[in-house]
Amino acid sequence: MTQDQKKPKILVFSTDKISDPGIDQAGLRKIHYAPSVYVISLPCSSGVKPRWIMHALEKGFDGVFIAADGHECSYSSKCAEHTNQIILDSQALMTAKGISPKRIRMAALCSVCAEPFASHMENFSKILSNLDSTKD
C-alpha cells in the first residue's frame, strides 16, 4: 500500500451552476487533488440533507465537504444561512454518533475557483488525516 492510498476519502456536494463548474475547471487546468475525492452535484447547496452526510460518513467516507454557492446563489439570497444550518444539524447528528464534527466542512466556491478547490481539498485532507492519527 502506498502512502496515497491512505488519503482520506472525501465526499463533495457541489452545485450544478456554480461550484461544479469550478471543480470542472480544476480538471480542465490539470490542477491535481487527491483521487479519493468524489463529487455529487445538486441544484443548490441548501438542498443537502443531513441524512446523506450521515450515510456517507457511516459508509466509510472520512469527511464531507459542501462547496456552497454563497452569495452567488441564484435561488436564494439566504443560501449561505440555509447551508450553514445544514452543517449545524449534521454536526449535532455526528456528535450523537461519536463522529468528530470536524469531518464536515463548508466553503463558498465560485464557478472559476479551481485553485481554491484544490487547496480546500488539500487542507481538509490534512485535517482528516490528523483526526485519524490522533484516534489511533
Binding site: 455529487i40 440533507k49 446523506w52
Partner: peptide
C-alpha cells in the same frame, strides 16, 4: 427545484425529483 425545503423537514416528507434519498445514497 432548488431543494432548500428538503433538508428542513423534520419527518423527511419532502424531496426533489431525481435527488431522492435512494438515488443519492445509492451513489454514495
Amino acid at each position: 427545484g432548488c431543494g432548500i425545503c428538503a433538508p428542513v423537514c423534520p419527518v423527511n416528507a419532502i424531496e426533489i425529483a431525481q435527488y431522492t434519498d435512494l438515488e443519492i445514497e445509492s451513489m454514495i
